[in-house]
Amino acid sequence: MDLSTLTEYLPLYAQAAWLTLWVGVAGIALSFVIGVLCAAVRHFRIPVLRNVAGVYVELSRNTPLVVQLFFLYFGLPKLGILISSEQCAVIGLAFLGGSYMAEALRSGLEAVESIQTQSALALGLNPVQTLRHVVLPQAVAISVPALAANVVFLLKETSVVSIVALPDLVYVAKDLIGNDYNTVEALALLVGFYLVLLLPLSLLFAWLERRLRADGRRAKSRAPKTLGSWAVKEAAHA
C-alpha cells in the first residue's frame, strides 16, 4: 500500500463521504417522517389511507433499492418528471426506509396493550393525552432499537446510489480503480470511510439500547405477557 496515494486520495473520499452522509441523513429523516405517518395511519385504522400505506409498505420492502432507484432515475423522466441524482437518491432511500421505520414504530405501538389505553382513559385523560403520556413513551422505548438498526441499515444502503451517477464513496472508489489501478489503496479507503461513518453510530446505538434495556426491565410490569422489545426488534426485521 502506498501512503502517498492514500493522502492523495483522501480529499476525494472526504468529499464523497460528505455526499454519502448528506444523502443518508436527508433520506433517513424523510423516511422517519413517512414511517410516523404510515404507522399512525395503520395503527389507528384510518380507512383508505391504511390500505394505501399497506400497499406502500409491501411494495417498498419487497423490491430492492437498486430497482427503486432505476425506476426513479430512468422511469420518471419517461413520464415527464425530471429529477437530479441527489433528489433521486434521497427519494429512493426515503421510499425504502419509510416502510422499515413504519413497521418498527407500528410494532412498538402494538406492543402497548390496549388495557393500558383504557386505564389512562378511565382516569379522565382524553385520547390525545393518552397517546402523548401513556402510549407513545412506551411505544417509542420499544421501537428505539429497531429504529436505530434501520438508521445503520439505510446508511449502508446508500452504497448503491452510484448507479444513478451520484459520486458517493463507492463511485469514487470505482472511478479511482478504473483510472489508476490502485485497487488496494482505493478499497482500503472505501472500507475505512464507511467504518468512520458507521462505527460511531453503531456504538452510540448500542449504548442507547443498553440504557433502554435497563429502563425497559424496570418498566415491564408483566414481562411474559407483553412482547419484549428484543422480540419486537427481531420481528421488525424478520
Binding site: Q116, Q118, S119, G124, K220, S221
Partner: peptide, 15 residues
C-alpha cells in the same frame, strides 16, 4: 374524571 376505576391487572403505567 368523576368515576374512578380499578382493574384486575392493576394497569399502572410502567414507564
Amino acid at each position: 374524571a368523576r368515576v374512578g376505576m380499578v382493574f384486575q391487572s392493576y394497569e399502572l403505567f410502567p414507564h
